[in-house]
Design a protein around this nucleic acid. Structure first.
Lengths: 334, 334
DNA sequence: AGCGGTTTTTGGATCGTTCCAATTACGAGT
DNA sequence: ACTCGTAATTGGAACGATCCAAAAACCGCT
C-alpha cells in the first residue's frame, strides 16, 4: 500500500480512503491512485483490515449435508442474498458430524466472520454457539433449531406440513399410513411426525408405533423403510416420508416390487426439492420453499449485523403440493 | 493474547509458541497457558497471524454449480481430503457466472487462501487465474480446463468415456444415436461429443449434425432435447447424454410419452452420480469417480503448496457402468 | 493580503499475531 | 564455584490495513 502511495505521490492514508471509496478524496486523486493500483497489481489484504476494523464482510454458511439437494438449494439461495448485499458468503459442510461442525465454527470464528447461518448437524450440543453469541457474532439457525441455544432461528412449519400431508392421505381414504425415514432424535423428525400424529388422532385413528419407521434420511432409508413397512402383518397403504430423498427411495422400492406408486401405494414427500416434480410419478410433497426460507434467514442475519439484537424465532410457511404419487386426481386440491 | 500472558504469568511470545504447539515450551508452562486460554475464552485471530506469516491454512473451492449433484459430490469429496490434512476448506458457488467467479476469486485472494481448487464456470476468460498464479497461489482446475490458463488441472478422460459409451450403444445394434444436452461451447461438451464422433466414424457411420442437440445441462435440457430428437424425420433410437442430470430428464420425457427407457429407447448418462443407480430404470452411465478425481486435485494442490511447482495436467480414469437404461442384459459387459 | 470555513490530505498510533536476536534458567562436568 | 552447552523464555520490530486528530490546500469575501 505504501508502494502505491509512493507511486501515486500521495500518503498511505489517502490510498486507504480510495480503497474504501470514501467521498472525501478528490476525483482526480482517486484516479491517480486507481491507476497506481492497476499498475502495481496490488491485492487488498482483508485480514489486515479486519485487524483494526472489527467489521468484516465475510459470512459463513454451515450446512449439515450438502449432498442432500434440499440443503444445496437452500445454500445457493442464501448465497444469492448475501452477494446482493455486498457480503462474501462461504459455505462449509459438516456432513452431519458435530465434531466437524465444531471445527468449522472455530475456523470461521478465527477468520473473523461477520455472521453465520447454520443448519445444525444432528447431535449439536446446546452450547455450540455460546462462544460466538457471547462475542456478538450474529448466528441464525436455519431449518433446524437446537434447543437451549440462544440464537435466532428460521424453521419451516414442520408440524403443520406433517398434519396437512396426513390429512390429505386420510381424505383419499387411507387408514394405515406409515411415517418413513429420518432419525427420531432430530428436531425435524419430532415436528414432522408430530403433525402426522396430530392428524391421525384428530381423525379418531390411533397412532400405531410400528408404522413409524426411522432410518437414515436418504434413499436407502426410504427403501429399507418401505421393506419393513410392507413386511408388517397389517401393512400400510400409504406413507408420509421424512423428506423427498426418502420418498425417492420409496418410489424406487415400490417399482422394484412391481407396485405402481400412486396406484398401489400412496407416497408423499417433504421439502419439494427441484427433482420432486420430475420424479416418476411426480411426487406429492410438502413444499418448504427453501429460497424464501433462506432469504429470510439471510435478512435476519443482516439485521443482526446492523445491530438489531432481538432474537427472532421465525416460522416459514409451508403448503402441500399435490402431484401424482399420492394417487389423487388433479381435480383434488389440498 | 497479552491478557493471557499476564494471566498465566508468561510473555506473549510464550503464548504464541503454545498456540503453535511448538516443542520449545516446557510441558508445565504449556498447561498453565492452556488453562488461561480456557479461562478467558480466547479466540485465535487467524487474520493477524496471516499478516506476519504468509502461510495460511485456508483453502478455497470454487464450484460452478453446487445445485448439480455431481459437483456437490465432488466438493464434498475434496473437502474431506483437506480436512484430513489440517486445512480449512471453504466452498463458494459461482452459478456458472464468470463475473461472479471473478468476485469470488478476488475475495478468496484478499482473504489470503493457501490454494484453490476451481471448477471453472462457463466462459471463464483465459487470464482469470493470472493474478493468483503470479502471486504464487496454487490453483488447480478440476473437471474443466480453460485453455490458455497456466494452472494445473485434473480432468476426467471425457473423450474416452464418450467413445466407450457410444461403442456400447453401437454394439447393442443402435445406428441412430443422439448426443443430448450441454452447451456446445464448453470444454466438457467438446470432449464428450468428440469421443462420440470418434466412435461413430470408426464404425463407418457418419455423424449427423442434427442428432447433436445442445441445451442446458439440466433436466429441462434433457426433456426438450429428447422432444426435438424424437420430432426428427429420422428419429434416433438411443441417446448419449451430456451428463446424468440430462439423462434423468430424458428418462422422464420418455415415460411421459409412454415409452419405456431401455426397451423403446436406450439412454446412457455421464458422471455416475449417486442417484444414477437409483433411477428407474437404473442408469447406464460413464463413471467419472468424483471422489478419486477430487482427491487427486486436492493432493496436487497440497503438493504445490509445499513447493512442487511442476504444472500437472492429470487425466482421470473413466469406465462405463452398464445398468438397465441402455437395454443391455446384465450378461453384456462393456 | 488576511480571514473564516470547507474540503482534502496526512503522519502516527493501533489491531493481534509471528519472527528474530538476545537473554535467562538449568544441568552436568570440571 | 565456575564454565559451558542446551533448553526455555522474552522484548521489540515487523506485517498491512484503519482510525483519529491535526495540518494543508483551497475557496470566496472583505
Amino acid at each position: 500500500m505504501i508502494d502505491i502511495a509512493r507511486h501515486a505521490g500521495v500518503s498511505k492514508s489517502t490510498v486507504s480512503l480510495v480503497l474504501r471509496s470514501s467521498p472525501l478524496v478528490k476525483a482526480e486523486t482517486r484516479r491517480l491512485v486507481e491507476r497506481a493500483i492497476d499498475d502495481l497489481g496490488y491485492v487488498y489484504n482483508r485480514g489486515a483490515a479486519n485487524l483494526r476494523q472489527a467489521r468484516s464482510n465475510m459470512v459463513g454458511m454451515v450446512i449439515n449435508d450438502l449432498a442432500n439437494p434440499f440443503f444445496a438449494e437452500l445454500a445457493v439461495g442464501i448465497e444469492r442474498v448475501f452477494q446482493g448485499a455486498g457480503y462474501v458468503p462461504f459455505i462449509a459442510n459438516t456432513a452431519e458430524n458435530p465434531l466437524r461442525q465444531a471445527e468449522v465454527l472455530r475456523a470461521l470464528r478465527e477468520q473473523g466472520v461477520a455472521g453465520l447461518i447454520v443448519c445444525p448437524s444432528r447431535g449439536t450440543p446446546s452450547d455450540a454457539f455460546k462462544g460466538l453469541v457471547a462475542d456478538g457474532v450474529p448466528v441464525v439457525q436455519a431449518m433446524r433449531r437446537v434447543d437451549g441455544a440462544r440464537a435466532a432461528s428460521i424453521v419451516p412449519d414442520n408440524r403443520r406440513g406433517g398434519r396437512q400431508a396426513t390429512e390429505h392421505l386420510l381424505a383419499l381414504g387411507h387408514r394405515r399410513i406409515a411415517f418413513l425415514g429420518g432419525y427420531r432424535d432430530t428436531f425435524a423428525h419430532a415436528e414432522r411426525s408430530g403433525g402426522y400424529r396430530q392428524a391421525l388422532e384428530a381423525a379418531g385413528i390411533g397412532v400405531d408405533p410400528a408404522l413409524i419407521i426411522d432410518g437414515p434420511p436418504n434413499r436407502d432409508g426410504g427403501e429399507t423403510g418401505l421393506a419393513r413397512a410392507l413386511a408388517l402383518p397389517n401393512a400400510p397403504t400409504a406413507a408420509l416420508c421424512f423428506n423427498d430423498v426418502v420418498a425417492f427411495g420409496v418410489l424406487a422400492g415400490l417399482r422394484q416390487r412391481g407396485l405402481t406408486p400412486g396406484v398401489d401405494f400412496a407416497v408423499v414427500g417433504f421439502d419439494d426439492v427441484a427433482d420432486a416434480r420430475h420424479a416418476s410419478p411426480p411426487l406429492t410433497t410438502v413444499a418448504v420453499d427453501s429460497f424464501a426460507l433462506g432469504e429470510r434467514a439471510a435478512q435476519t442475519m443482516l439485521r443482526m449485523v446492523h445491530g438489531d439484537a432481538t432474537p427472532v424465532e421465525g416460522i416459514g410457511d409451508v403448503h402441500l403440493v399435490v402431484r401424482e404419487s399420492c394417487g389423487a386426481g388433479m381435480e383434488q386440491a389440498a
